[in-house]
């Protein structure tokens, strides 16, 4: 039964990664990358790997996104001009 929940999660993360491709703003692309990491950590739990799930949730969805946003704040001036 849990395989159907996993299927829904897979569909959600594929749609979210497509948002990361086609969004105009860089910030929404970074946020959707964090959501992809969160969904993948849920899939790790369904695949019976709780250690990896904890690590991915703490690092991929938390710290990685935060470091991206901090680095984006440093280059904010150039980013708005360069997008299209």
């Amino acid at each position: 039964m849990i395989i159907y929940v996993a299927t829904i999660v897979v569909i959600v993360i594929i749609i979210t990664s497509l948002i990361a491709v086609f969004s105009k703003k860089l910030l929404s692309s970074i946020i959707s990358m964090g959501l992809v990491s969160l969904g993948v950590s849920g899939l790790f739990f369904f695949l019976q790997a709780p250690d990896v799930a904890i690590t991915e949730a703490a690092i991929g969805a938390g710290l990685s996104t935060a470091i991206f946003v901090i680095a984006l704040k440093k280059v904010k001036k150039g980013e708005t001009k360069d997008e299209e």
Binding site: I30, M33, S37, S64, L72
Partner: peptide, 9 residues
């Protein structure tokens, strides 16, 4: 930065 996002995915 977008390229780095792609590498993370």
């Amino acid at each position: 930065f977008r390229i780095i996002v792609g590498l993370n995915i």
